[in-house]
Computed example of a mutant assay.
Amino acid sequence: MTLIAKKNKLHKISTWFSDKRLHILGWTIFIFYEAIIIGIFVGRFSTLSTYVIFYSLNIATFYFHAHVVLAFALKKINERWWKLPLFILIELGVYLILTVCLDYIVINYTDYNGPIKLIFNAAFFAAPIYRAIYFMCFATSYYFLLNFLEERKKIEDLEKQRLNNIIQIAKSENAFLKAQIQPHLLFNTLDFIYQSAKDSSPVAAEAIHSLAEMMRYSVDGNKDKEFILLNDEINQVENLINLHQLRKDHHVQLRFWYDDEIRNVKIIPLVLTILVENMFKHGELLTASHPAEVSLRIEHNQLIIETSNLTKAVKDNSGLSSGMENIKKRLEYTYGKNAEFSYFTDSNQYFKVMLVIKIK
């Protein structure tokens, strides 16, 4: 065995004694106390080997009853009534057999000269039965003490977890309040720039105004709402189109069709906005002969949203599929079978999207 292996073994032994030091101390005090009391009462003391043999049996009975018999017998509530008595009877029987065997060994193979003889009568069996029940009662108290300490630890852990959750919620609320302050500071700054620029540079001022409205909608609008009016989405899309028209000097070829009564229809937020944003990001919208289209209509108690746009010659599909799949999952989660969502690129290189939602 190498020196490192010996050190590891010694460390394990030392750790075990450290963990069990209370048990070792308790049993040492109990054995010395009981041995002295009994020795004084009967007027004689047994040999060391006798003490070692029989206290080893009693200590083993103590832990076996606590960790095996009670743990297994009390595991299922509806089976306790028959398992516990049966296991205790078996345990008593095994204890009696082991006691007889140990008595035989002590009497015949040690220097024992005490009064105990192997005479199988009531008095002979009464002592070990009493002794077994004595240690089993201590073991039962030990078992319930362990369970009590374990349950208390669980309660303490749950309380710590609850306090940690409260602290995390407080931190989240604080971060949320900070996050609210920062966008509003930005909106106030944009409003100042808009007011300053609307006379000297009306085009730039209009772009700033559209951008501010879009950002305000994304940050402040629709909080904690599952559904919004389609009117809000339409206004957002018109701001988006206006911003891109200003950027491209009004060369964007996009037709936006809808009837005014459709504004009162409710829908989940940002669906229409994301569809139009994808058109600007991934589509070719500057060709007059191939204008893009967005149409909203109601037919047969169904809201129908369609988009169509020419794809770019050099395709950049980064984020397109993930954006479409995100919309699809949100629709499935909210509407289930009451919504149909499809998209594809046709033979003329037009990317088309159709969304059909049944209106309740």
Rank of each mutant, 00 (worst) to 15 (best):
I4R: 09
A5D: 00
K6D: 05
K6M: 07
K7P: 04
L10V: 09
K12H: 10
T15L: 08
T15I: 03
F17L: 13
F17M: 07
S18F: 12
S18G: 12
K20W: 11
G26L: 02
G26D: 04
I29H: 01
I29T: 11
I31S: 02
Y33E: 09
E34V: 06
E34P: 00
A35T: 10
I37T: 01
I38P: 08
F41G: 10
G43M: 06
F54D: 06
L57W: 08
H65V: 00
V68K: 09
V68T: 08
V68M: 02
F72A: 07
F72N: 04
A73D: 06
E79T: 15
L84E: 04
E91L: 14
G93H: 10
V94E: 03
Y95G: 11
V100L: 01
C101Y: 03
L102A: 04
Y109C: 01
Y109A: 04
T110V: 00
I116E: 05
L118C: 03
N121G: 13
A126T: 14
A127T: 14
I129W: 01
Y134V: 03
F138A: 14
Y142E: 01
Y142A: 05
N147G: 12
F148H: 15
L149G: 00
E150P: 03
K153Q: 13
K154R: 13
D157M: 12
K160G: 00
Q161S: 04
N165D: 10
Q168I: 06
S172M: 09
A175M: 07
L177F: 07
A179D: 09
A179V: 00
I181F: 14
P183W: 05
L190I: 15
D191M: 12
Y194T: 15
D199S: 15
V203P: 08
A204R: 04
A205C: 09
A207M: 13
L211V: 00
A212I: 08
Y217H: 14
Y217V: 06
D224M: 13
E226D: 13
N231C: 10
I234S: 02
Q236P: 01
Q236M: 13
I241Y: 00
I241W: 11
H244D: 14
R247A: 10
D249K: 12
R255I: 07
D259M: 07
I262F: 01
K266S: 12
K266A: 03
P269Y: 07
L270R: 03
L272S: 00
V276D: 03
V276G: 01
M279Q: 05
F280V: 14
F280S: 10
F280C: 06
G283R: 01
G283C: 03
G283W: 09
L285H: 08
L286I: 10
P291Y: 03
P291D: 05
E293A: 07
S308Q: 13
L310S: 06
T311N: 14
K312P: 02
K315N: 12
N317C: 09
S318F: 13
S322C: 06
S322W: 01
G323M: 01
E325L: 10
I327W: 08
K328D: 05
K329W: 02
E332G: 05
Q349G: 10
Y350E: 10
L355A: 10
I357K: 09
